[in-house]
Design a binder for these strands. Sequence first.
DNA 1: AAACTAATACTCTTACTGAGTATAAAATAT
DNA 2: ATATTTTATACTCAGTAAGAGTATTAGTTT
Lengths: 321, 321
Amino acid sequence: MPDKPQNHSVVIGLNAVIIAWDDPVPRFLVRNKHKNINELPFDVFQPLSYRTLEENVHALVDDQAKLELGYIEQLYTFGNRGRDPQEEKGGPRFVSIGYLALLLGKAIEESNAFSETNLWKDIYAFFPWEDWREGQPAILTQINESLEDWAAHATNDHDKQEKRARIQKLFGKTTKEWNEELVLERYELLYEADLIVESLRDKNQELPFPTGIPMEYDHRRILATGIGRLRSKIKYRPVVFELMPSSFTLLQLQHLVEALSGIKLHKQNFRRLLERTGMVEPTGEVSEQTGGRPAQLYRFRAEVMAERQDPNITLPSLSNS
Amino acid sequence: MPDKPQNHSVVIGLNAVIIAWDDPVPRFLVRNKHKNINELPFDVFQPLSYRTLEENVHALVDDQAKLELGYIEQLYTFGNRGRDPQEEKGGPRFVSIGYLALLLGKAIEESNAFSETNLWKDIYAFFPWEDWREGQPAILTQINESLEDWAAHATNDHDKQEKRARIQKLFGKTTKEWNEELVLERYELLYEADLIVESLRDKNQELPFPTGIPMEYDHRRILATGIGRLRSKIKYRPVVFELMPSSFTLLQLQHLVEALSGIKLHKQNFRRLLERTGMVEPTGEVSEQTGGRPAQLYRFRAEVMAERQDPNITLPSLSNS
DNA sequence: AAACTAATACTCTTACTGAGTATAAAATAT
DNA sequence: ATATTTTATACTCAGTAAGAGTATTAGTTT
């Protein structure tokens, strides 16, 4: 007799990482359900009500906060057993799909996106080691010590070497060695090294020092995936413009890219890049709110996507802070 | 009263795109179930038997063909209603997850990977427009005519312009304009333009000319996703070496990269790149099977991944055929 | 008026790509 | 046995872009 369908059925959770730009802070939406509990907006997929997963994600966001989303993309499908406490009580198997979405820049201007009903929290409060805009984050000295400790206690030499190689690659100490895209990989290394509260919940252990705000379930992992994907995406697709208002100064644009990538950029080279690719054009107006010489206002030229095969933003980074 | 769990439960299908290198043909595994029917290896996820999705994928592959896999990665989760005919008959909702895996090069040498029980089919028999190794594929003249026709029949001018822009971007006629990574995007454009059999099954239409071998369900779409991902991946992660035997000549390596990307490369520049990045080192031996001057044998230097932050392969392409 | 803040213009070195030419060392064809 | 073909390998040269600056301009704030 073949398997009964019950043996195969699972429940799908949809989780949304929604990013917004609140100059100079990059934020994401936290579900405002219980105080002191940080969850991504999420919902159980309702196959009877929605034709596609994306439709359900849109509805989920609309429902909990009337938001105008721009770019949206699927991140990853996580299927590990034991991520949801309900399962342990004999509930159904959970598989969760993460989505990344961007809140349109004009939506911020026009809507109540930052009202009290929505909690928009600073991304880097959850990943303090990822923000290099003011130079190397202080927390990295403690992290590196703890990681070295962890590697030193490896069971054998081969394992020890491998761990040190990973640490070196992910947490290299100079700006040149820092690869800002590896957000998820760094989170998972810290998780393995018992430096993330989420991994210690059942172990009766304590953190040696605070390592960012924890989240429910595996939501901080999904958030890490989202930030990593966004950092990689801005380099080969001009998604940043969705987060910007329709007209902006080049310094504002630079600040946004810096906020997302967590890296300071070289101003002159950044401008040279934008000119070369033709991604922006002057509106003709100037902004007087600069506190210095007034700046030209620019708008995004959507046509470049059709004209050029490859309008890359290559993050002209600054090694010295 | 809250929803019953039944309203939420779905069945997950796991689909594997398994790539192998059979010099000079890049192949993928087709399930050998019924003749003249082309399916990817797939299975229903069994949440009671496996702790993770990946474990189930591995088991699925092992079961149907004893294969030694190297790299494996998740591609995408497809949740559109109506992809599986079973659903129409009141069956459960299907959500399918695609995976990409590579058959280890040494596995080919040592195993029965290409035996009669496994059907390894030429990738480009399913996507004849994607193979530019011998210059522009002949089928592209027909495709471009049909696409222009399709755009010309758009309902309004704006729509017409948009369609032409997409065609130009995806099917640009010169080597310089061709972006080999956009395999999925091209497949979906052809699908929309009714040039893919899979989209016509219920429409009682016929193809104007054959456009590659069709597959069951949406498996050709998943295959397109896999090829596109692999083409993009080889540029920033040295995954190609998994498909190669442990020692090889540089021309063999170049042929593999060309086969996967569908593009001819400039030999001297390709070698210069490999030298500069230190990705390979000579074994000291030479191959006499070249039919010309004997070639040095090389092996992959796994250490580069630790040494260098970014050992890119940048496809030094050849514009003239 | 001096100090500060930012915008904008320009330079210089280095790295890498695209596209070759030239030569060497073997196999195969005549 | 010599010519032709095949492949490997060495080297060149122009063009593009990145990294890291200096210098100047045009406003605000003190």
